[in-house]
Write a protein that binds this DNA or RNA. Structure first.
Length: 222
DNA sequence: GGCCAGGACACCA
DNA sequence: TGGTGTCATGGC
C-alpha cells in the first residue's frame, strides 16, 4: 500500500484530514451504555434530535440500564419522541436491553472483553440492530476494531471517486479494513473525521461549499 | 410546506 | 435477491 501522507490512498486521506483539522476522536456519550442508546436512536435521524431524546432520558433519571430495564415500550416511547420513529425505536431499545441483560448482566462495559466479530454477530441477532448500529456499538461502546460505514462514509468516498455508491455495507467496510491497520483508535477517529467532513463541508449536492480536500474531490466547488 | 437526516425491517415480485 | 414502503420528529 502506498502510505504517503498526502495521497489519495485511504490512510493518506486520513492523515490529510488530521493535519488539517486535528484529531476528532469521538462519539458523543458519557458511558458505554449511553453510546449504545445513541447508536440505536440515531438511525435515519440527525444527531441533534438524538441529543434531545438523551437529555430527556437523563432528566428523567432513566439514562442507564437500571433506569430503563423495567420500562415497557409504551412508556419509553414518549421519552425518546424527539429522535423520530419513536415507536419503532422504543421496541428496538427494549430488544437491546433484553440482550444486554441476558448476555452481559446489563453492563455495556463487559462487551469490551468480547471478540469483535463475536460481539458483532451477537448484536446483529438483536431485532432492530443492523450492520451500522452493530458496528457503532462494537467500535465506540466496546472499543473494538471494526470500521463503521454510514451514509456520510458513502457520500464522502463516492464523491471522491474512490467508492461505488451502489456497493453493499460489507463491501464498503471491507474496502476500508483491507486498507488500514486493524486499530480501534484509528477506526474511531477516521469515522469521526468523515462525519465532521460530511457535516461541515461535504453536504448533499448542490449544498456543498468548497471542499477542504483540495484537489481530491472531483466535485469541489459545486 | 417540502425536504432531509449517521437505518432497519417487512413485504412483494 | 433486489426494490419499495414504512416508521416520525425537528431543522432549514
Amino acid at each position: 500500500m502506498a502510505a504517503s501522507g498526502g495521497g489519495r490512498d485511504v490512510l493518506g486521506i486520513y492523515r490529510r484530514l488530521v493535519r488539517r483539522f486535528g484529531p476528532a476522536g469521538w462519539w458523543p456519550g458519557e458511558t458505554a451504555f449511553e453510546v449504545c442508546l445513541g447508536a440505536i436512536l440515531v438511525q435515519n435521524t440527525g444527531w441533534t434530535n438524538v441529543e434531545k431524546a438523551l437529555d430527556r432520558l437523563r432528566r428523567a433519571g432513566r439514562l442507564s440500564f437500571e433506569g430503563l430495564r423495567d420500562l415497557p415500550p409504551s412508556r419509553l416511547g414518549p421519552l425518546i419522541r424527539a429522535s423520530g420513529t419513536f415507536r419503532v425505536k422504543a421496541s428496538r431499545v427494549r430488544a437491546f436491553l433484553d440482550f444486554l441483560g441476558e448476555a452481559y448482566g446489563g453492563r455495556a462495559e463487559a462487551m469490551r472483553a468480547e471478540d469483535p466479530l463475536v460481539l458483532r454477530r451477537r448484536l446483529l441477532a438483536v431485532h432492530g440492530i443492523g450492520p451500522e448500529t452493530a458496528d457503532s456499538i462494537v467500535l465506540y461502546a466496546a472499543g473494538l476494531p471494526v470500521f463503521v460505514v454510514d451514509a456520510y462514509t458513502r457520500r464522502v468516498f463516492s464523491r471522491l471517486g474512490l467508492l461505488d455508491g451502489r456497493l453493499g455495507y460489507d463491501e464498503v467496510q471491507r474496502f476500508f479494513m483491507d486498507r488500514l491497520p486493524r486499530d480501534a483508535a484509528l477506526f474511531n477517529d477516521y469515522h469521526a473525521q468523515i462525519v465532521r467532513l460530511a457535516q461541515d463541508f461535504c453536504r448533499p449536492c448542490p449544498r456543498c461549499p468548497v471542499c477542504p480536500l483540495d484537489g481530491l474531490c472531483p466535485k469541489r466547488g459545486v
